[in-house]
Design a protein around this nucleic acid. Sequence first.
DNA 1: CTGAAAGCGCTTACAG
DNA 2: CTGAAAGCGCTTACAG
Lengths: 333, 333
Amino acid sequence: MRVTIADVARIAGVSKTTVSRVLNTRDEVDHSTRAHVREVIDRLGYVPSSGAVGLARGTSRTVGMLVPSLTWPWMGEVLQGVVDTVEAAGFGLLLFTCNRGTDSVERFTSQVSAGAFDGLLAVEPEDTLAMLAALHRKGLPVVLIDDRGRHPEFPHVTAANREGGAAAARHLLTVGRRRPLVLAGPLRFGCVRDRLDGFEDAYAAAGCPLDPALVIESDFTEADGRETVRRLLSQGRTFDAVFAHNDLAAVGALAALRTAGLRVPDEVAVIGFDDIPMAGLMYPPLTTVQQPMREMGETAARMLLALLAGEELSDQSVVLPTSVVIRQSTAGA
Amino acid sequence: MRVTIADVARIAGVSKTTVSRVLNTRDEVDHSTRAHVREVIDRLGYVPSSGAVGLARGTSRTVGMLVPSLTWPWMGEVLQGVVDTVEAAGFGLLLFTCNRGTDSVERFTSQVSAGAFDGLLAVEPEDTLAMLAALHRKGLPVVLIDDRGRHPEFPHVTAANREGGAAAARHLLTVGRRRPLVLAGPLRFGCVRDRLDGFEDAYAAAGCPLDPALVIESDFTEADGRETVRRLLSQGRTFDAVFAHNDLAAVGALAALRTAGLRVPDEVAVIGFDDIPMAGLMYPPLTTVQQPMREMGETAARMLLALLAGEELSDQSVVLPTSVVIRQSTAGA
DNA sequence: CTGAAAGCGCTTACAG
DNA sequence: CTGAAAGCGCTTACAG
């Protein structure tokens, strides 16, 4: 059924060794022999069995990718960046989301021991960090795409969260907002503290320190963003801007402000973080701090491929720039 | 380094054959031998090499998934359904998006010949249908997650597009709309024709045939939905509802209507198709015909796994029900 | 119930 | 420049 290297060798009248060399090495084969073997390979449509190659070479030319969820709004972009890069390098991508308890985590780790992939890309491994650290110590190359934590022990790529927070602040100051509400993400995340620090410092530097009562921990969901803003308004709190630590919460803020009859951006300007695909489609279109998700995926993949090629990483930690995308939720009509 | 079956055999004082049997067969091994080997396996943390098992058995226990894009708004749901199902069955999922020309298509097909996976799940393979048909004829099990075409030659899962179109019509009739605009998708897609047929028939059955001038082919994008509605309004066309063949186009319609100063749903009701995650977050929240994307992914994966297990499919074609999710873009406040 | 041996399809020293 | 042979880590008739 399957065409094997033995078939090619027999038909070309050479040894399997020679066929293998034509396939894998650049020299050591006579020019005309090489051409002839090539011709037979093409004619037969021979493709080496990836399983056999992997077994003989001890590598799979496959990378694993572990994500906590595939339905988060920005995950598609990250994944697309990863897949494009990995495919272009001729590697396969094995996808895992061990999000169904101990069982699935165990199944995942056993795939590692099984040598199913040579290296791992992981997004935000909140509950799996210990496991990843263990695999990493055992020699598995790992690169984190790190939206949440601070994991100096791993090579990782992050967005410039601190600068992003500062840029959000400068933008709000530019449009004249002196009293912003901060809808922070969970404070246990490093990225959240960074965004907050950058934002606070920029406001302080402008001689306009934040009101601590207007810095609220939220949970990155639309529902909580909406509910939090509703509650603050009903308590009589006043603010002239909202800085949400992600776009989903910003969308919730938009809804609560609308319900309360407050005009955006005239009375309250709103800025989010991420620039998920729907941000520009909201009403009003949402100003936001863009994280270059696709580029983060590409960069992480390139780092992992470099590691697998035995190269040293010039930087263990790559920080990609964020940028403010100005739309009508802060900029007026 | 790696613990092999030979290590286990040596330490347990049995043959590799026996270890293999403990691993793979239910009987043929003495109870106490089995227990002892199990204990050694656990103690050593032995996991069979997936490459070696695959080579020896001729299968990879991996399924491939081919998607045209990872950034479409509903793709995450499909993927999550697939991954959950495939993982639970102990299979790996290899992800491909050969969307970069001939090169990447070739690379993909060679992965098939390489035996990198045992079966394939594919979403909407517009430009790759001929290639998939060829692989299918050569014996590769393929299941299509079929949002667009009509591909009777493959096992596939679809949503009930015709019924969905009819349900959209009935809903609009219920809220008193007699003169709807249809923002159709590309008419070359089977799903588009089905949605249109169902919608038209239901309106005709209500004694209210559609105005052909109000059935417009669009391209499933927000920009085109917006532009089309803008153009029709500027031409003086009147309609009291919009049925868009996907949510993105419906979101565009919402924007154009807002710009034109038309109130939704009072003056124009809007209904979409898909129920993508952002549908409920729009202003006003978008009524839409829901496709069960995650379930489609799960179902397709289950079908493929059944095929790989050598089972006959009871149905080559599975049609999952759609349902109207009523929100404020048709229902008033 | 158990094991020796061949085989899956490659790669890679080693020898010439 | 080329090939015979061993080896990668398993499974599976076959024999006992």
